[in-house]
Design a binder for these strands. Structure first.
Length: 569
DNA sequence: GCCGTTTTCGGCCCGACTGTTTTCAGTCG
């Protein structure tokens, strides 16, 4: 049965194709709203479908309910198929280029017959785009640059998609009698923000039989390739994540898990070490610990296996004691219906409590972010009353803080005056607009925010949006130097599309003693679960619990927040 | 296409920036 995300993807696709077709924008928005509602639904849509309650989903009316029904009954959607016959789906890739939206892509298609990247590139090179009004030589140059960047960017899947898929598959595989053990491997296990495939390792007395059983259970066909020590099969779903299954006998599980987890650079270093010590690097071991021990090393956490000095650290007993998800006690960046969140303060607080959090800061958007219904100082004061009321209702089970995600304006000043900022428990300062300013200008903007004594945390510092949008072109040297000097914390935004700071900058921040904050930026209760991805990113950056302010006891955290805002005053 | 203490039609988050204009359309968040 298709899950909610699959259904949502269907309606997102419809919305984009309708947009390219030039349909009524409100109809388009209706499809997007329905897709969003499906994404956020906390029960499977199939359950509501069986009970004929689909229209109870906000944003789903008769027309969309009928389409869901058709798809669930037949596996097809006639409406979408007709639409795809009318509007070339290859246009969708063009809308992913920055600066090209549906309207412009539509005109390229209608007026120049361009339907794919190659044709667009050719037309831009030949200077044929400037014939269209609204396009000039500058747009041609920017489009060529964008095409280049688009081709160069690593294609892949978000960790936030791949990880749940892996868990789901493991559940199916572990239920098979032919399989003794099944675990994640590859880049998903290492917690990379983007992955190319899903590697799953199986232990079985008969690797080939295990793989055959796995393929049957997954209703997949693939060739089973048999090697002396293991067997493997690669499932290539038409549009989805490739799944690489590897099966080995339990006696060499440890060796197989080390090799299937990678990375290449880590494995090369292990091979060199084994050879230097006169060992066979492929020797069978039942556990990873035994494998590493044979090389005189402690077990190395998968997130560190990137060839970034982890082996030297292991040899000198300097591996960090990496932060774990359950060390997080506080969420310091979340939204409610007061701005663009989907749940009330009460609902968010209860969800945070249910996940074991002891502190929750509600940090709605500030006034100038109109799209998100940002709060004026007056509404901010009104919100304070509601936070107090919810705090009173929930008692001391969880501590609620009032904060704000304050816009860093075009000149680097903040969206609230100092006296308003001073009233807040937590100030997260973030960039949302004009992210493509030249390096010097955008860096200067961020530096001004970093130096503002009222700011506790810089939210999603680079502003990147995976998989398509790179972050701002920042002078990181200057940013990190300023952050270290001001004592501001840099956020690891845990949303799978952000994971920003990325692992590399996490490590650089730690080297300079900059405090880190792992926050989910939750807009719905289920978003709190994303913190796990933030923790993986922190671990990839060698972070221990001490580096992360969210791990502190509430009292210590409050003390840090207070001293930060009273420092320099 | 959805929705209704504005209720079955007529609305449906907004504002800055950019490159192209000569008063603006399209993109983006």
């Amino acid at each position: 049965m298709p899950d909610n995300q699959t259904l949502a993807a269907l309606f997102k696709r419809i919305a984009l194709l309708l947009e390219l077709k030039g349909e009524n924008p409100y109809k388009i928005r209706a499809y997007r709203r329905a897709a969003e509602a499906l994404t956020e639904l906390d029960v499977p849509a199939t359950v509501l479908w069986e009970e004929q309650r689909l229209t109870e989903i906000p944003g789903v009316g008769d027309a969309i309910a009928k389409k869901i029904d058709e798809y669930l009954r037949t596996g097809h959607l006639t409406f979408l198929e007709r639409l795809e016959a009318e509007v070339p789906p290859s246009l969708i890739e063009l809308t992913q280029l920055p600066g090209l939206g549906p309207k412009k892509v539509r005109r390229l298609w209608q007026e120049l017959g361009i339907t794919n990247l190659d044709a667009l590139e050719k037309a831009a090179q030949e200077g044929r785009l400037r014939a269209l009004s609204g396009f000039g030589p500058k747009s041609e140059a920017r489009i060529l640059e964008a095409i280049h960047a688009h081709r160069a960017r690593p294609q892949g899947f978000l960790l936030g998609q791949a990880y749940p898929t892996a868990l789901h598959l493991l559940e199916i595989l572990r239920a098979l009698p032919e399989i003794a053990q099944a675990e994640m491997a590859g880049s998903v296990r290492r917690g990379k923000a983007m992955v190319h495939d899903l590697e799953l390792l199986l232990a079985a007395a008969s690797p080939t039989e295990a793989l055959q059983a796995a393929l049957n259970a997954l209703h997949a066909e693939a060739e089973i390739v048999v090697h002396p020590d293991y067997a493997e099969a690669e499932i290539q779903p038409p549009e989805g994540l490739p799944i690489h299954l590897i099966a080995a006998q339990p006696a060499r599980w440890g060796t197989a898990w080390v090799f299937s987890t990678g990375s290449k650079t880590h494995l090369n270093a292990l091979r060199d070490l084994a050879t230097a010590q006169g060992h066979n690097p492929e020797a069978p071991f039942p556990t990873e610990t035994a494998y590493y021990a044979a090389l005189g090393l402690p077990w190395i956490p998968p997130e560190l296996r990137e060839g970034q000095g982890e082996i030297e650290a292991a040899q000198t007993k300097r591996l960090p004691n990496l932060i774990t998800a359950n060390a997080i006690q506080a969420e310091l960046h979340s939204h409610s219906t007061w701005s663009d969140g989907r749940a009330s303060i009460r609902e968010m607080a209860e969800a945070a409590l249910a996940r074991g959090l002891r502190v929750l800061a509600i940090t709605d958007h500030s006034q100038s972010l109109g799209v998100a219904h940002g709060l004026t100082p007056e509404r901010l004061r009104a919100q304070k009353e509601e936070i107090r009321a919810v705090q009173a209702a929930l008692g001391n089970q969880i501590l609620l803080l009032q904060g704000a995600e304050v816009e860093i304006l075009a000149d680097g000043s903040l969206d609230y005056p100092d006296d308003v900022l001073a009233e807040l428990d937590v100030v997260v300062a973030s960039l949302h607009t004009s992210l493509r300013q030249p390096r010097e200008r955008i860096t200067e903007r961020l530096l001004r925010a970093i130096r503002n004594p009222f700011v506790h945390i810089i939210g999603h510092p680079s502003g990147r949006l995976l998989p398509h949008r790179a972050g701002a072109d920042l002078d990181w040297e200057a940013v990190l130097t300023a952050a270290a000097a001001s004592g501001v914390a840099l956020e690891i935004n845990a949303h799978p599309r952000r994971l920003d700071l990325d692992d590399e900058h996490v490590r650089q921040a730690i080297d300079r003693g900059i405090p880190l904050a792992i926050n989910t930026d939750a807009h719905t209760p289920t978003d709190f679960d994303n913190r796990f991805y933030g923790v993986l990113t922190a671990r990839r950056g060698w972070a221990t619990a001490d580096h992360v302010i969210n791990t502190r006891e509430p009292k210590r955290l409050l003390a840090w927040l207070k001293q930060k805002s009273t420092k320099n005053h």
